[in-house]
């Protein structure tokens, strides 16, 4: 007949060995679980080579660092060049396969900036944020020319492309923009392309009604929404510019400056842009 073996009493050694030590080890191991991070990427300039490059660096950082569980884009931009906008757009689409991306429109997400916003999972604006402006703007190249001291191997080496072709190029770019908005917003979009392609800037409230953005609220709400989508809590908000080791944004003469030093809303060089250029014309 077997009798139960009486348990050995917990003495100090046993407690140390079976409770304290595993607890310490457990706590130590738990510290290996990182605090989730919501990365913040700010865009408060036009989208051009420098700013787009910085955004892409931060997006790649977010994708490659597991502790970054979501990204919030804080946008205040009139848009920029078509190619740089498309580059940022493509990188966001790639990041969204693993992490949610939320756009918060601080002041303006017009044209290319809205193109970028449309690629995110959720767009939050402020009631009076300037949103939309879906379209492309082009300054036609000059007529083909030749110069006495410059030799080229083709008629468009100096100007890039024929004026008529340039006009048609922007129609193709516009179609890409429209598709990006329609695909990004999906069923949430409540207006047709007739309205979208008017290239209008809408205030945040109107944009919500049209399904162009999802809601109007605060920046905190953007982080909450990001956390909710990423299913995280007690997160840390990290500026990805600093985290990715980028220097302060360098100034680049993207906008045309007059000889008197006045900055205009026009790009420095002609080309194709997804850019909102507020009229400088003084109304009567």
């Amino acid at each position: 007949m077997n009798e139960a073996v009486p348990s050995r009493p917990w003495n100090a050694g046993a407690i140390l060995l079976f409770v304290f030590l595993p607890l310490v080890v457990g706590i130590a191991l738990s510290l290996l679980i990182p605090q989730p991070v919501i990365g913040v990427i700010k865009l408060d300039d036009a989208i051009y080579t420098n700013t787009a490059g910085d955004m892409i660096t931060q997006l790649i950082y977010a994708r490659e660092h597991p502790e970054v569980r979501a990204v919030v884009l804080i946008l205040n931009s009139p848009g920029g060049t078509v190619s740089d906008t498309e580059a940022v757009y493509g990188e966001i689409a790639r990041l969204r396969k693993s992490k949610p991306v939320i756009a918060f429109i601080q002041g303006m997400a017009a044209s290319g900036a809205y193109y970028v916003a449309a690629s995110t999972d959720y767009i939050i604006g402020q009631p009076t944020s300037e949103v939309g402006h879906i379209g492309v703007i082009l300054t036609l190249p000059p007529n083909p020319l030749i110069l006495e001291d410059i030799y080229t191997t083709g008629p468009y080496k100096l100007t890039g492309y024929p004026r008529d072709t340039a006009m048609r190029e922007i129609e193709a770019a516009k179609q890409g923009f429209l598709q990006a908005v329609q695909l990004g917003r999906g069923d949430r979009l409540k207006v047709g392309e007739d309205i979208l392609l008017r290239a209008q800037v809408w205030p945040g409230i109107e944009a919500v009604r049209m399904g162009v953005i999802d809601e109007v609220d605060s920046m905190t709400r953007a982080f909450e929404k990001a956390a909710e989508m990423a299913k995280i809590a007690h997160y840390e908000v990290v500026n990805l510019r600093e985290a990715s080791g980028l220097l302060e944004a360098s100034s680049y003469p993207f906008f045309l400056q007059t000889s008197e030093g006045m900055l205009t809303p026009y790009p420095n060089k002609p080309g194709i842009y997804m850019l909102y250029i507020p009229p400088t014309v003084r109304q009567p």
Partner: peptide, 27 residues
């Protein structure tokens, strides 16, 4: 005792796994 802090911390921070959209369509 070893696992508890790990689970606790994990649950403190993470409430589930992110489910990305099935397709992320681009133009």
């Amino acid at each position: 005792v070893l696992i508890a802090p790990i689970i606790g911390r994990a649950l403190w921070f993470y409430r589930g796994a992110y489910q990305p959209p099935q397709t992320i369509a681009t133009p």
